[in-house]
Computed example of a mutant assay.
Amino acid sequence: MRKLRSGTVGRRFTILYAAGFLGSGIVLLTLTYVMSGSRVTRGGPAQPPGRSGSTADQRVHALERQLSDVHTQQNRQLLVGSLIALAVMVGVSLLLGRILAVRVLRPLRLITAATRRISADNLHQRLAVAGPVDEVKELADTVDGLLERLEASFVAQRRFVGNASHELRTPLATMRASLDVAVAKPEAAAQTVALAGRLRTELDRVDHLLDGFLVLARAQHGTLPDRTPVSLGRLAREALTAAPDLAAKKLTVDDVASSDSWTPGSAALLSRMVENLVDNAIVHNDEGGWIRICTGHGGVEALLVVETGGRVLDQEQVDRLTRPFERLGADRTGSERGSGLGLSIVAAIVAAHGGRLDLLARPEGGLRAQVLLPAAGEDA
């Protein structure tokens, strides 16, 4: 039997049931005791004339005293026995109340458990409670209607992000082609060439932002048909090798990545996850700073940790970094270069793979990003 926690409806139902039984038992016991105390006095037979009644009166009084003592003793025994019976029945009522509470509230617990299992990745699931049309079924149907509206909203949002990102690539390509044509002219003005360079930089940022939208929409969709065993250590080394600003900022890298840290998932999405973590560590780092990357395998989990030094950060602000376009502040080094989607994409990819992302502000300064994913062997 499931233990009822303090303050739950089941406990309150049990207490109310036992209190009602105790109150009715006290009333019944009081009425029984009052009614048992009433006595009927009957007169004795008339004394024959001429005979002294002193001896008979003494016997009658003695018998009355004996009857009164017996009646008092019986009342006392009845009261004690009733109190004991009442105490026993209070315990029984608590047990019965708990059983009834568990039985009555069982449909609600099933609805609660089913609702908790439903997340943004499986909004298509429904409670589908069967049974008579009562308050419980009406509640379940209401929750199913809410889930249906949420699913439609999530699908529409993801479809809009994906379609908008794809549609915007065409005008971006047209603008790039127009710039190339303008710069390729034999007598292109110096101002035109400079303007084209600045526009290309902005177009690159927009293209990178759209790419981030696409990856975010795919990760949030939760469907990963291309699951294969992926080495987090290999992805980390590849991300460090391809990092363009690592040498420019004179960063020291402590790479202790292990090749045995394998996880099942989408190689493309996991590669993007590691690249974003490494890029975030480089962009938001001080010149001449350090980066520590380590991977490991512990039981059922594969671990990836990316740490950086720097100034002391506020943990409350760090907790908000997984939201889109959220930053620690405009004064962060290199913040103007980011799109604000890096860590939100990381969080979405980790969630799509059934893992967990922990962002911790290091007490001595800097940030620690820790990713825990389901582990897989190299031979999986």
Rank of each mutant, 00 (worst) to 15 (best):
R106F: 08
A182C: 02
M89H: 03
A177G: 13
G145W: 00
R117K: 15
T174C: 04
D121G: 03
G162I: 06
A164Q: 13
R116E: 15
A101R: 00
K137Y: 03
A120P: 00
N163F: 15
S153M: 13
A182L: 13
Q157M: 08
P107K: 01
G91K: 02
L108H: 05
R116G: 09
A130F: 05
V181F: 13
V133S: 12
L94G: 02
E148K: 10
L108I: 13
G162E: 11
L110Y: 12
F154Y: 08
V88P: 01
V136L: 12
Q157P: 00
A177F: 13
D180M: 07
G162N: 14
V183R: 00
A87L: 07
V181Y: 13
L95H: 12
V88K: 01
Q125R: 12
M175R: 04
R103C: 01
V104G: 05
K137S: 14
R126V: 08
S93Y: 02
L146Y: 06
D121S: 07
A177E: 15
R126L: 09
A156P: 00
L108P: 01
R116W: 10
L110F: 11
F160R: 03
A114Q: 15
A87W: 03
E138M: 08
L146A: 11
T115P: 04
F154T: 11
D180R: 07
V143R: 12
V90T: 12
L86H: 09
I99D: 04
V161T: 07
P171C: 03
A101T: 00
V90D: 05
R116M: 10
P107L: 07
T142Y: 14
R106S: 15
L179V: 10
T115N: 09
V155M: 12
A101N: 01
G97C: 05
A182S: 06
P107C: 11
R126D: 07
P171G: 02
A128D: 15
L172E: 05
R149T: 06
V161K: 00
L146E: 07
D144W: 06
V161R: 00
E151H: 13
L172C: 08
L172T: 08
A130L: 10
V92P: 00
E151N: 14
D121P: 00
R176M: 11
R149G: 01
V92K: 01
L100Q: 08
L105R: 06
I111T: 13
G162D: 14
G97L: 02
V102Q: 14
D144G: 05
V136D: 08
A173C: 08
A87T: 02
R159F: 02
L94Y: 08
